[in-house]
Computed example of a mutant assay.
Amino acid sequence: MKKIAFWGGILVLILVLTWGYFYFDSTPSETAEEAANSTSKMDVFEADNALIFEPKESAESESIILYPGAFIDALSYAPLAKQLANAGYKTYVVEMPFNLAVFGKNRAEPIISENSDEHFVIGGHSLGGVMASRFAAEHQNEIEGVFFLASYPDKKGDLKSAGIPVLSITATNDQVLNQDKYQESKKYLPQNDTTYVSIKGGNHAGFGSYGKQNGDGERTISASSQTDQTASSMISWLKTSVQNEK
């Protein structure tokens, strides 16, 4: 019976992965590919199962760990990571097994342990945010803030009493985010230390840079505008909420 259950689980996994890769147009855009090139301001390289965007000049005190959404390649977040790095924040976009953060919840662990001189905030897009919050809940002494991009925590990622600031960014034309669960999840967030931002005209896929996501609403702002607003909101939160906690 155990063998049947094991192979049954493997079959289900294969079917889910096959469905996901065909259902989601998650190929990184040309803009994402271009953004992943090193520049005079930053170096881009791969290490610790992550794409790392490192400022060449003096960096800010916090580094950022970003978990991608389900079936989304880490490269798709290069435009956002580039802006954060250009603002002085070293940014790690984690590469997940099968492009699913549910299989790589602890991939932030070696990044943190091998860079002990850095201070970290962690977060993610969609499913990535859920798993990032679970990691943060289990490693509260190692994390200085948590951010959600069209995402929310579940019970295992309860941050209400964690004593760290939280940022939640959503978009008005997002038709993928489950609004009922999003509202319900607020009970797992700190009441007086959560910053909420809504990007008017943005959608779910606009937090990355990849193809259209099935079931999503139409974006009425440009992709670059949504990236700009996401980056500026994160940078403002880092400066006013995370750094002020110290």
Rank of each mutant, 00 (worst) to 15 (best):
D174I: 13
Y182D: 07
L189N: 03
A162E: 08
G201T: 09
L177K: 01
A171W: 02
S161L: 10
D174L: 06
S168A: 14
A150R: 00
Y152R: 14
A162L: 11
A150L: 09
D158E: 10
P190D: 06
T195R: 15
A171P: 02
G201I: 02
T170I: 08
A150S: 15
K160I: 07
L167S: 04
L177D: 00
P165E: 11
H204E: 05
K186M: 11
D180Y: 12
K187M: 12
Q179M: 13
E184Q: 13
Y196Q: 12
I199H: 02
N203S: 15
D193M: 12
P153F: 00
G201K: 10
N203W: 02
I164Y: 05
G208E: 05
P165Q: 06
Y152S: 08
Q179S: 10
G208D: 06
I199N: 04
K156E: 14
K187Q: 15
D154T: 12
L177N: 00
G208W: 05
H204S: 10
N173D: 13
V166H: 11
I164A: 01
V176Y: 06
A162R: 00
G163E: 00
D193R: 03
N192G: 10
A171Q: 05
G208C: 08
P190R: 02
K187Y: 09
V197Y: 05
L167M: 05
S168F: 02
I164C: 02
P153N: 01
A162D: 12
V166G: 10
K156P: 05
G157M: 04
S185R: 04
K156I: 12
I169M: 04
G206T: 04
I199A: 07
T195P: 00
E184M: 08
Y182A: 06
N178K: 04
A171F: 03
S209N: 15
L159M: 14
G163Q: 00
K155G: 03
T170D: 14
D180C: 01
K160M: 06
N173E: 14
H204I: 15
A150Y: 01
K155I: 11
S198I: 01
T172R: 02
L177A: 04
G163K: 13
G202E: 08
S198W: 08
